[in-house]
């Protein structure tokens, strides 16, 4: 049976949806929400989505797409070029290597996995950023970002699961 053009467009759109969502999250991370004085701290939304897709929808966002999205994030935030790419590809790699353990456990295990992987990723990015700028950076903003990331995970899972169901139905 030959696939109609509309069907093919929908299928390709559904396949690209997770990567496009991550791209949108890069932009949402940059929105001027105006919290605090001169520069608010946002949760690491792209890390949450990368963790979720790597764990629950393997292959939804290929590492090359994560690399490109990380680079775009660095270019837009003005941070060290390559740092975002290391972070996202690193999180993806860590989840893939531990998927058996993380996916068989309960939601608490999944959340604990996020805690461990996010803390590891944050530590790694802090070391790399400090090396890049040539001075140990204040870890306060990063600590807040990590705490926010961990706190929003249940809500993020709910939203991402709805999103996933929607694009799975289309595909």
């Amino acid at each position: 049976m030959t696939e109609t053009l509309q069907g093919r467009v929908r299928r390709i759109g559904a396949a690209l949806a997770p990567a496009l969502l991550l791209l949108l999250l890069v932009f949402i991370d940059l929105l001027p929400l105006g919290g605090g004085r001169l520069g608010s701290t946002m949760p690491l939304l792209t890390v949450v989505a990368t963790y979720y897709f790597a764990l629950r929808v393997p292959g939804a966002v290929p590492p090359l797409a994560l690399f490109a999205i990380g680079l775009l994030q660095d270019a837009l935030t003005g941070g060290p070029p390559g740092l975002g790419a290391v972070l996202l590809v690193g999180v993806h790699g860590a989840v893939v290597s531990q998927r058996r353990v993380l996916s068989r456990g309960s939601f608490v295990v999944e959340w604990a996995g996020l805690v461990v992987i996010t803390l590891g990723a944050a530590l790694m990015s802090w070391v790399l950023a400090s090396a890049y700028y040539g001075a140990p950076l204040d870890p306060g903003a990063l600590a807040i970002a990590v705490l926010l990331t961990l706190a929003i995970y249940p809500a993020a899972v709910w939203a991402l699961a709805r999103f996933q169901r929607r694009f799975a139905r289309v595909a």
Binding site: L30, P32, L137
Partner: peptide
């Protein structure tokens, strides 16, 4: 008009 705020952990910038 401010259209973006790079409030990342390592950068304080705006667009």
């Amino acid at each position: 008009r401010l259209i973006a705020e790079a409030g990342g952990p390592f950068v304080r910038a705006a667009i």
